[in-house]
Write a protein that binds this DNA or RNA. Structure first.
Lengths: 115, 115
DNA sequence: ATCGTTCATCGTAAATATACGATAGATAAA
DNA sequence: TTTATCTATCGTATATTTACGATGAACGAT
């Protein structure tokens, strides 16, 4: 990537991009779905539901944990995963801000301003 | 990436992940913001507002175009970019579905089911 | 026809992401 | 203590992303 310029952008943009990155793989979207639909949260259960190896699923879980969207409680040899309602709510609100902001104002097409 | 397993996931998850990927870089978040705040849409304007070379900005614009979040109208030697309200709205609704779905149901913590 | 402007694309380099098997650590059960 | 189970991490291979400069294509203006 040559030299990452990540730090030269706006804080809000960096936060949103980071959440979006965590959501940018189908496996991670499905993991979020699984974690809420079943309230069983074991890694092994998820592995059975996805076409991926255990180690790969573990990596995806780690990425979701990194941004705080899920939590993992150690329960003996198992780890019990669940979504974090707080951070999911925060992300929801942040995304609403861009989406609403942009959809409200952005209706004017380029075509209209051709001089 | 070894062999991409992208096609073995659910359709909705693939779509959402793809939109999220397009939003997963601060530059692209800021581009969306710029395109709606100013209704001037030239690539050159955006280049001046971001710490990136023209060719890099062009690549980011291409990615946003790929998923349909923005459109580019050719206007002589210039290209006039603007957001696509329709596809932005669609993305907004899809994200609401996961976020609402997940935040409504997912409140139960792992801790509660320890047997 | 030539020049300047605007933008996309090409070529390339380096960083990240994705995926797997193998292994290690932690705990429950025997 | 030994064994089985569950998960994280390591090492590794390959694909993708990010970034830049250079070049090329399209157009307006001279």
């Amino acid at each position: 990537m040559a030299i990452a310029k990540t730090n030269e952008f706006e804080k809000e943009a960096i936060y949103l991009a980071d959440i979006a990155k965590a959501l940018s793989h189908p496996a991670r979207i499905q993991i979020l779905k699984i974690l809420t639909e079943m309230n069983v949260c074991m890694c092994g259960d998820i592995v059975e539901l996805l076409p991926l190896a255990q180690s790969t699923v573990s990596q995806h879980l780690k990425e979701l944990k990194r941004v705080g969207l899920i939590k993992g409680d150690i329960d003996g040899p198992k780890v019990c995963y669940c979504v974090s309602p707080e951070s999911l709510n925060k992300a929801k609100k942040e995304f609403e801000i861009i989406f609403n902001h942009y959809t409200c104002k952005g209706a004017k097409s380029c075509r209209t301003k051709k001089k």
